[in-house]
Structures are given as C-alpha cells and as structure tokens.
Simulated assay, not measured.
Amino acid sequence: MVEDIINNGNVKYKGSILEKYYSTYKPYTFKELYFINQKPIISDKQDSRILNENLNYYKYDLWSDERQKVQMDRVHEYGLLRSHGTQHFGPVSIQKGELELQRLKDTYHSILKYGHLPNKFGFISGYFLRYKNRYRFIILDGNHRAAVLCAMGYSKIPVTFQAGSPRIIDYNDIKNFPHVKRGLFSLPLAKQIFKTYFEDDGTKKARNLGLIN
C-alpha cells in the first residue's frame, strides 16, 4: 500500500490493495488467523476449542501473561469503536479502512519531510521470537512506521523493547510461557504457531489470498 502511496499520492481507499486485503483476509477464528498455509496440530479438545474461538472475544497475543477481553463497544483508535475493526485484518468499516490509509499517508509524508526521528516521535517497539539461531521481531507499536520505512528502502530500522513484555521469547522455552502452562494451548500447537513466524514472510499467505501472483 505504501508503495502505491509513493507512486500515486492521490490513491483512494476504494479499489486499493488495502481495501482488497481487508475484504479478502477476514479471519474469524484463531485457526483462520494462523493456519492459512497448513493444517494445525490438534492434541486435545482444548486445542480444538481455542482454535475455533471468535477472535473478537480476546486479544490474540499468545505470549502475554493474561488474556485480555476486547471491548467492542469502547473507543479504540482515533475515536472509532473497536467494532469498526482492527488494523491487522478485516473485516473493517469504510471509516476504519480510510483511516488506516490516511495514517500510512501521514506517516510517509512526515518521514519524507523530516526523516525518521525515533528519539522525537518514539521508537518502534516489541519483542523478539528466537528459533534456533534465527530471529523475528514482533511489532507491538509502530506497524505503520515500519511499513513506510521498508517501502522507502530502509534496510535497518532501530527498535526498542516494550515495557512489561519479555525481550526474547525462545522456542525452547515455550513450555514456560503463561498460556501454555495454563493449558490454554497444548505444547505441540504452541510450537507449531511459533514456527509459522519463521516459515513465511507473508508472501505465501498473500499468494493464497489472491493478493499477489
């Protein structure tokens, strides 16, 4: 989407790749969120139950200490209720889709004019997943900035760790993470979900959704 903004500053939400993404990728359950490219390993009835749970009931961070319920009738981002949707996937309302496009435009023009100034505007933050000697950085704050910087050709982006979150979540230590210890996810299922972050950079998912050839 940002590449389109760079090439056409007047691009509209209707008919954009962002609208196509939101209208195509509409996971309703955890299974639809994590397993577009493969079948999940289901060890017991609890795995089946959690995989088929409505995504709107809880926030979907698998590694946090507590399950946080989503309040659909409360103001979420930029004055819109959570019922308008989330930035990460569809369905979203037209207002939400247009808001996300405008956020990308505003971020792009700000960085184009002033440069990337994390010390002034804040760092992109999150935590690392580690699998063997490989790492993936999970962004908790700064998705729009990361998308813009990548589209603008930045090869390195400074990040920081978010307070209250672990800095590194290691594959070999999954058994000790809260949701696994509580039995919310079985160990085999948690490991499979963990590895999905290393098996696809998003290209395979986009191709399966018909977003790219």
Rank of each mutant, 00 (worst) to 15 (best):
V180I: 12
S165I: 10
A147K: 12
K195R: 15
F198C: 06
F198V: 03
Q162Y: 03
L129W: 09
L149R: 04
K175L: 02
F128L: 06
R136H: 10
L187W: 02
N176R: 02
A147Q: 13
I157V: 09
N133E: 12
F185H: 09
R167P: 03
P158L: 12
G164R: 01
V180F: 03
L129A: 13
F194T: 05
N143V: 02
G142L: 14
R130N: 09
R136S: 06
I157E: 01
D170V: 05
I174K: 01
F185T: 14
P158S: 02
N176W: 07
A146D: 02
L140V: 11
G183A: 07
K191F: 12
I139M: 13
F198A: 09
I157P: 01
I169Q: 09
Q162V: 06
M152C: 05
F194V: 06
V180Y: 03
L184A: 04
A151E: 07
V180L: 11
R182L: 09
K156V: 13
A190V: 13
L149Y: 00
V148H: 01
N133S: 13
A190K: 01
M152V: 03
I193W: 01
R145D: 00
G153V: 00
P188V: 11
I174F: 00
F194Y: 14
V159T: 05
V148E: 02
L140Y: 15
S155D: 13
F185D: 11
F177S: 14
A147G: 00
N172L: 06
L129H: 08
V148N: 03
V159A: 00
I157Y: 01
K195T: 14
D173G: 06
F185C: 02
Y171N: 00
F194D: 10
S155Y: 14
K156T: 08
L129I: 11
S155Q: 14
N172R: 03
Y135K: 06
V148P: 00
Q192P: 11
L184R: 13
V180P: 08
K181F: 13
K181T: 14
I169L: 04
N133I: 04
F177H: 06
I193E: 05
Y171K: 08
K132G: 10
Y135V: 03
D141P: 12
T160M: 14
G183R: 09
Y154A: 12
G164C: 12
R182T: 07
L184V: 14
L187G: 10
T196L: 08
P178R: 07
R134S: 11
P166H: 11
F185Q: 04
R130P: 08
R182A: 15
L184W: 15
D170Y: 08
L129G: 08
H179W: 12
I138L: 06
A147T: 10
N176Q: 14
R130C: 10
